[in-house]
Amino acid sequence: MNDLKYFLTALFVMACITYFVRMLPFVIFRKKIKNNFLKSFFYYIPYAVLAAMTIPAILYSTSDIASAAAGLVVALLLAFFERSLLTVAVGACLAAFLVQIIF
């Protein structure tokens, strides 16, 4: 990232938003959210965000689709058997790396 002015501005925007979503409720709110829609929405949103960020971007996260697809399959399998975050991540990398070397 060579554009320093852009980087620092973007960094400032990111850090401020991230801080404010944590700070404002911590300083202001004292009551629990009762609205069922909002509660459900907030409960589901992390999964929705992660899924939208992962699919299909994961397929383009390495130098070629074949290795990324191998990594995706291995990650899904390891996650299905509830391995730790690190194990799943390393497994996906290894699968992608092996496919890159072999083909």
Binding site: P46, Y47, L50, A51, M53, T54, A57, I58, S61, T62, S63, S67, A68, G71, L72, A75, L76, L78, A79, R83, S84, L85, L86, T87, V88, A89, V90, G91, A92, C93, L94, A96, F97, Q100
Partner: peptide, 15 residues
């Protein structure tokens, strides 16, 4: 290059 997939692997492990 193969490590670029790591963070997505973690997302999958979370969801």
């Amino acid at each position: 290059s193969s490590l670029g997939i790591a963070i997505y692997g973690m997302f999958i492990a979370i969801i």
